[in-house]
Design a protein around this nucleic acid. Structure first.
Lengths: 212, 212
DNA sequence: ATTTATATCCGTGCCACTACGGATGTATGG
DNA sequence: CCATACATCCGTAGTGGCACGGATATAAAT
């Protein structure tokens, strides 16, 4: 059975040595190249053609995010595993957009790294638990804000939504089984409450408050 | 070593039997109760106090989503693993919001189920690869819209901004030293180009495209 | 040279929405 | 019991925006 060929880039020499030593003990993976220079890594990928690239995220010269994007554009089949100290939402989101196949934190155990490499080599994705939790927050958080600061009554929120969907007063009346006049009154009250004076302002308010 | 106690609810009897049989062979987990009725499941959780609840998502009477929410509110320590046939974005998002600890697809292998149960019992999260891919889409998709092209001319963008600032046509005309009629024409063209028919839609478009 | 996109301007008529000022019934809470 | 908030409804008057159908000038693209 052939070993899976891995390329590692990390501008911290110690970290780099550590990972290399760890993988050298593995029977499944083989480090075919290593570098502290991300630009050099890009060249190595072209020439050495590894199956997996393990990359640090914050590096001088070329960030892991940029590196990942470039790798994916020139060699889409190369799997990329991001290795980071941080698990902030922004970095994670950017890495995901860059098309990363896995993202693990540097403080996680060695078996986590091997686990990740295994999954990734099978074409699956792998994310550290902490990273998954952050992803979850990104997905659910916007929805949580929704329930917080709304002065509007339930009925008024309904009206706002329908206004947002480009319905006019008559149509809204039909949908809610109320008179067009009532809709007008709600509108009036909504504008007063939201301190807006046109549909433009209202929609901005609605979007800010996640009503639409 | 004590076995981890599991409660299973699935309104498909065959599926239920299958999972129970599978877990009965496991040395790590023990099925302490099973039911096809989600409402009964809720009662069983109160009385039997399992460590993990495995639940189907689409069930008659009480959906897995609602069940999860209720379980988490009365017994926050009970871990919930969702089992579903589908991996659509909406269901996944709803389950995440309900506070689920894991989500796997019914077509995945048995070792995936055991894997998930292990992780979850350790307080971690577990999601099937397909589910993770959907989550990824949810995170990255909204950002992709952002980079989409803007058909509007410079002048039109100015107008849109001013509309967003709640100015009427006359005021916009004053500010830009053009006739109110010209503003109206621009408006007309803007609505056509953005494929919107009211200020509401326009502002939504403007916000999505970062014009406002 | 002609088409296309842009930016400017104009008239007319209609209707949706706004402003203003009411009214009624039902909860909820002090 | 009364005040308050909410949801419902109505009339009148006025106007802002929309539809439709034009026009002119400039610049870039074909």
């Amino acid at each position: 059975m052939n070993k899976i060929e891995v390329l590692i880039v990390d501008d911290h020499q110690i970290m780099l040595d550590g990972i290399v030593a760890l993988l050298n003990r593995s029977k499944q993976f083989e480090v075919i190249a290593q570098t502290t220079n991300p630009n050099e890594a890009l060249e190595l990928i072209k020439t050495k053609n590894p199956a997996i690239l393990i990359t640090d995220i914050s590096m001088e010269g070329l960030s892991g995010i940029e590196l990942c994007k470039q790798v994916k554009s020139i060699k889409p089949d190369v799997k990329v595993l991001a290795l980071s100290m941080f698990n902030d939402k922004e970095t994670i989101t950017e890495m995901l957009e860059a098309g990363v196949d896995g993202y693990i934190l540097k403080n996680t155990g060695t078996e986590e790294l091997l686990n990740a490499l295994q999954k990734i080599s099978l074409g699956q994705l792998f994310f550290s638990n902490d990273v998954t939790i952050e992803m979850l927050k990104t997905i659910t958080q916007p929805k949580l804000v929704q329930t917080e600061p709304i002065n509007l009554t339930q009925r008024e929120v309904e009206i706002v939504k329908l206004i947002g969907d480009e319905f006019n007063n008559a149509q809204i009346g039909e949908k809610l089984f109320i008179s067009e006049r009532t809709v007008e009154t709600h509108r009036k009250n909504i504008f007063r409450k939201t301190n807006t004076k046109s549909v433009a302002g209202l929609i901005k308010y609605a979007i800010e408050n996640k009503i639409v």
